[in-house]
């Protein structure tokens, strides 16, 4: 009896350290943040001195035109960069999934942008976009074209940060897609070729569906990252002109340090967290559903035989 109970409890003993670490390292800070979002907390106060204001911070945010604009900018930014990076990254992987001489070197060069510190990336692009001495405008001028207001016009500034982000993060998608491609079962590809599938058909009906689980996770990782990007935009535009490139992470950081409203900043972070969790859940549900569908199809197919 005694022994049986101990046996039953054993797994929990083994889990305990992990659970404790999790609670301390993950749940405590998140709990702290959730609690802070209910406070009117100024950084000159200790958290204990701050007034409890209930949901006021959240209510204020939902009526704050600047916050809503920056929320919209963030969503737009994340959607645009992830879609473009996925297309470019996967496309590049398809092109380079072959035995070429010097491939290792090429691959290393491709992923260089990812390894550069974000502040440096921001500074680099900022100088390239410089209205008079920047690379782009100088090149345009030497071709006799009109210079472009890269960072001084709202629409162009948004395009400029998208370009910089694509430059930096396409390699991430490329490298993961390439790994996925190279681990695909050769037999499926050979079978398709024997059945007379063309190159495009091979991509559409064999490679992409087989890569899908990896692609979804990749897109998700990029999406989460795109929602939190800060330094590059901070250095390039600092959110301007107007609020045209003020993404949420930047607004949160300004709310905490410039406006000195820690409670509101915490509330914003929570809204961002909720949004990201919803997206993650949606993606996982989608993969679950499509896996279930595939399993059903397989079962039906084996019954037919």
């Amino acid at each position: 009896m005694q022994i049986a109970r101990i046996n039953r409890l054993t797994p929990y003993f083994f889990l305990a350290p992990a659970i404790i670490v999790m609670a301390v390292a993950l749940l405590y800070p998140i709990g702290y943040m959730v609690w802070a979002s209910f406070l009117d907390w100024n950084p000159s106060q200790r958290i204990g001195e701050a007034d409890f204001v209930g949901l006021r911070n959240y209510a204020k945010l939902l009526n704050d035109a600047a916050f809503l604009e920056s929320f919209w900018v963030t969503v737009k930014f994340a959607a645009v960069v992830v879609v473009l990076e996925m297309i470019l990254g996967v496309g590049l992987a398809m092109l380079l999934d072959r035995q070429l001489r010097g491939m290792t070197l090429l691959r290393t060069i491709f992923i260089l942008p990812m390894m550069i510190a974000p502040i440096v990336v921001g500074l680099m692009w900022r100088y390239m976009y410089h209205p008079s001495v920047g690379l782009f405008n100088r090149t345009l001028k030497s071709f006799g074209l009109e210079p472009v207001p890269w960072l001084s016009d709202g629409t162009w500034a948004f395009a400029s940060i998208v370009i910089a982000d694509i430059w930096q993060w396409t390699p991430f998608i490329f490298i993961l897609s390439l790994a996925a491609l190279q681990s695909l079962p050769r037999s499926a590809m050979e079978a398709a070729r024997i059945d007379g599938a063309s190159g495009w058909q091979l991509i559409w009906f064999i490679k992409l569906p087989l890569m899908l689980p990896v692609l979804i996770v990749t897109a998700l990782l990029r999406l989460i990252d795109a929602f939190k990007v800060l330094e590059v935009i901070l250095v390039m535009t600092n959110g301007g002109p107007g609020l045209s490139t003020e993404i949420l992470a930047l607004r949160i950081s300004r709310t905490a340090s410039e406006f000195r409203e820690l409670g509101t900043a915490a509330a914003m972070s929570n809204l961002l967290l909720i949004l990201l969790m919803a997206l993650t859940l949606a993606m996982f549900t989608y993969t679950k559903i499509s896996e279930a569908r595939a399993a059903r199809l397989r079962a039906a197919a084996s019954k037919d035989h």
Binding site: N42, A66, P149, S152, D153, G154, G239, G240, P241, G242, L243, E246, R254, E258, F259, R260, E261
Partner: peptide
């Protein structure tokens, strides 16, 4: 004043719209 940070930022972004977007 303590509220200046938020007001200052608002003046700054709005003024930027005047300068770049013709508001």
């Amino acid at each position: 004043i303590p509220t200046w940070g938020a007001i200052n930022a608002d003046i700054g972004t709005t003024m930027s719209k005047v300068l770049t977007e013709g508001l």
